[in-house]
Computed example of a mutant assay.
Amino acid sequence: MQISGKREAGFDAADVVASLYRALLNREPDATGLDGHVKAVREHGLDDVVRTFPGSVEYQLIARPGPFWNYAATFDPVATIRAHENRARKAVPNHRVNFFGVAVNVDRFAPQLKLENIVEPPPIPANWHADMAEFGAALRAVERAGDTFTMAELGCGWGCWMNITAAAARLAGKKPFVIGVEGDEGHLEFSRESLGTNGIPTAQYKLLRGVAAAKQGTAFFPKQDRAGSMWGLAPVFAASPAQIKTLRKDKNYAELKMISLPEVVADHPRLDLLHIDIQGGETNLIRDSIDILNRRVAYIVVGTHSRVIDGEIIDILSRDGGWKLEIERPCFFTIHDGRPQTRMDGVQGWYNTRF
């Protein structure tokens, strides 16, 4: 039965909407919300209105459904995210504008989503590219920085975390400088475009094409016909002489420089944030770069790609003693043919007590 804005068969839209508020949100409706939902019932029918309640941030905070709430933290990521809202954000043609005011050319960067011309609510529990644990961790690094904010994003893609943390830093009155390392030439161009779109001048960023690694050397990185078609491309490290010969002839791979952390940090005395998302190479990078991490990096946000990596990084940084885990959400997986297959990356946020 379709319930209109008027009483039908003993039911009234206002009564039904009020019942939804009490059952799902544990409160009486406010006048504005009640009027808006009754109007929506009248225009679209009850089914459409009922579906809006579980998708609301208010309901998410009460019910906490789904795996993105499966985090452990020493701070409140929801409150942290809300504290960094860009209240002046507004729509940008052919872009999606997130909660922090960052405009993203989704049509170019992720055309399969078709999410242009939208101003986003808070990413609670997640938005189209990251969840609140990762947002919360990155924003904690901004909060812990001083008057300036310097960060590096390893595997920067379209420059997601460079843009978001720079936007949050500027809103907090801090001067940002961001560094991006990326193996895909097209994705590096996406980063350049997005930084320009969001008002970050060339003097405040540095982009490096190569593969982030613990040591210098050469790696082979997959090519793709259209940038943005595939994300999460994994490089080939430590190829044998025979593999090197084959890969150099393969037009589907580019031979790239391996960029070590000392080169990324360069002459910056401190990185306020190091964001690592390098498709399974994060354990080796952290283990083999622990000395410079200890001396020069104040905060690490790392995307993990298996439960094994989750545990390895916790073991490495916990044993060091100077690093404290602030937030962790494990990766989660499906089971295929008796083996786990990672479906969603995990995330960890660590701060360096030496700073």
Rank of each mutant, 00 (worst) to 15 (best):
R7W: 12
A9M: 11
D15Y: 04
V16P: 01
Y21F: 15
Y21W: 13
L24C: 11
L24R: 13
A31G: 09
G33T: 01
G36L: 15
V38E: 07
V41Y: 03
V41G: 02
H44P: 01
D47T: 06
V57Y: 02
E58N: 02
Y59M: 12
Q60W: 12
P65W: 07
P65D: 11
W69N: 05
A72K: 14
P77R: 07
P77G: 02
R82E: 15
H84M: 12
R87I: 08
F99Q: 04
V102M: 07
V104D: 00
P111R: 09
Q112H: 13
L113P: 02
V119L: 10
V119R: 06
I124Y: 01
P125E: 04
N127G: 02
A130D: 14
M132S: 01
G136R: 10
A138T: 08
L139H: 01
A145W: 06
G146M: 10
F149T: 00
C156Q: 10
C156H: 05
C160V: 05
L171F: 07
K174H: 05
F177L: 09
F177A: 00
G183M: 09
D184S: 14
D184A: 13
L188V: 00
E189W: 04
E189I: 06
G196C: 08
N198I: 03
G199F: 11
A203L: 08
Y205A: 06
A219D: 09
A219H: 10
G228F: 09
S229T: 11
P235T: 02
P241R: 12
A242W: 05
K257V: 10
V265R: 04
P269Q: 13
L274Q: 05
I278C: 04
G281R: 08
N284K: 14
N284T: 11
I290C: 08
V297I: 10
I300Y: 00
V301Y: 00
V302Q: 01
G303V: 00
T304I: 00
I314W: 02
D315C: 07
D315L: 12
L317K: 03
R319G: 05
E328Y: 13
R329A: 05
R329W: 09
C331F: 06
C331A: 14
I335Y: 05
D337I: 00
G338Q: 10
R339K: 15
P340I: 01
T342P: 01
R343T: 14
G349F: 08
G349R: 07
R354Y: 05
